[in-house]
């Protein structure tokens, strides 16, 4: 680990002022990803600005919406009564992630900006276009059994490891940010940049912008939501596929549906094609399957991850069927 200076931020403005202009500076939240990457030599900041003392650790009602501070720990958010009552998909996604210890430390904001767990990215002795632009992507011909099947490029096939972000994508969440220009807000699905030829550029926002919170709009009346994660180990493992879904069925017809897919792309994948196929149609397994297949038409699986295509299809069907069948 490189030597670094450490500062505690006294305010959001002060924190942003320290980091925004300094490409060698990083915000320190729960540390569960950043400190790990520093131990690995993947992140080598010269300055850490500790934001954990900032007053961004509340869950508050904002009209009909719920506003989650960026420093709310994963375990607190999962256990929050309003979250459990209104957004079961969110609580389930959080509890499906990591371990009790990690959830106690990890923050809401940090979770969204965590880096891929691709084994080549986390190993500083290997090439990786995300870590070292232009060095190549060994995953495409190498270990990729758990990497992307959607939206990947010839430059990078990494996946985003978050469970939380998949649920937030399905909830139409918005991300609160602050940069040198001041506070602003962006839909979570627009927060992530498609891979293209610059996998090192992961976010659409300015370097040094600080995530200050997440806003959750109310779900439509009658909505049911669920998160289901598939992993090789029964717990304490990243997903090989996950689905977050919100579904409203009226008189047997789908009146609202939102589907987030995890572990399939460089960012939480909102399944718009499937959603469009389902809206207004019957809430039947056949329709769910046809919609999932339509979404996966664009899949570009690699040598060792083609199993994910039928897995994601069947998972989408199972989750939607479960929601449609709930009473």
């Amino acid at each position: 680990m490189r030597e670094f200076a450490y500062a505690r931020a006294r305010s959001v403005d002060a924190a942003v002022a320290l980091v925004a202009d300094n490409p060698e500076a990083r915000y320190l939240g729960g540390g569960t990803n950043l400190v790990d990457l520093m131990e690995l030599g993947v992140e080598r900041p010269e300055l850490l600005v500790d934001v954990t003392g900032l007053p961004l650790d509340d869950v508050t009602e904002d009209g009909a919406a719920l506003r989650v501070g960026a420093l709310v720990r994963n375990s607190d958010l999962a256990a929050h009564p309003l979250v459990r009552e209104r957004y079961p998909v969110l609580s389930q996604a959080l509890l499906a992630g990591a371990s009790g210890q990690l959830r106690n430390a990890a923050t809401t904001g940090g979770n969204l900006v965590q880096r891929t767990r691709c084994v080549y990215f986390t190993d500083a002795t290997k090439p990786c276009n995300k870590r070292m632009p232009g060095s190549g992507c060994p995953a495409i011909e190498g270990e990729h059994h758990n990497l992307a099947i959607l939206g990947a490029s010839d430059h990078c096939v990494a996946t985003h490891p978050s469970d939380l972000a998949v649920a937030l994508a399905a909830l139409d969440a918005r991300v609160d940010l602050q940069d040198l220009a001041g506070p602003h807000e962006i839909p979570l699905v627009d927060f992530y940049r498609p891979v293209g030829d610059r996998p090192d550029l992961e976010l659409t926002v300015q370097d040094g912008a600080l995530v200050t919170g997440v806003a959750l709009p109310p779900l439509p009346a009658g909505a049911r939501s669920a998160y289901r994660k598939v992993r090789e180990r029964a717990s304490y493992a990243f997903a090989i596929a996950s689905v977050a879904a919100v579904l409203v069925v009226e008189d047997g017809l789908v009146s609202d549906v939102r589907i987030g897919l995890g572990a399939v792309a460089s960012h939480p994948w909102r399944a718009r094609v499937a959603e469009r196929a389902l809206l207004g149609g019957p809430a039947t397994e056949a329709a769910f399957e046809a919609a999932a297949e339509a979404e996966l038409d664009s899949a570009t699986p690699l040598r060792d991850n083609a199993y994910k295509v039928p897995l994601v299809r069947d998972l989408v069907v199972a989750v939607l069927a479960g929601l449609a069948g709930e009473r």
Binding site: Y6, L28, G31, T32, V35, D36, E39, L48, D50, T52, S75, G100, Q101, L102, N104, A105
Partner: peptide, 13 residues
């Protein structure tokens, strides 16, 4: 009072 992984906590923090 909360369980955490001490390997990912910086002492200074």
């Amino acid at each position: 009072g909360r369980r955490v992984n001490s390997c990912l906590q910086l002492a200074v923090a």
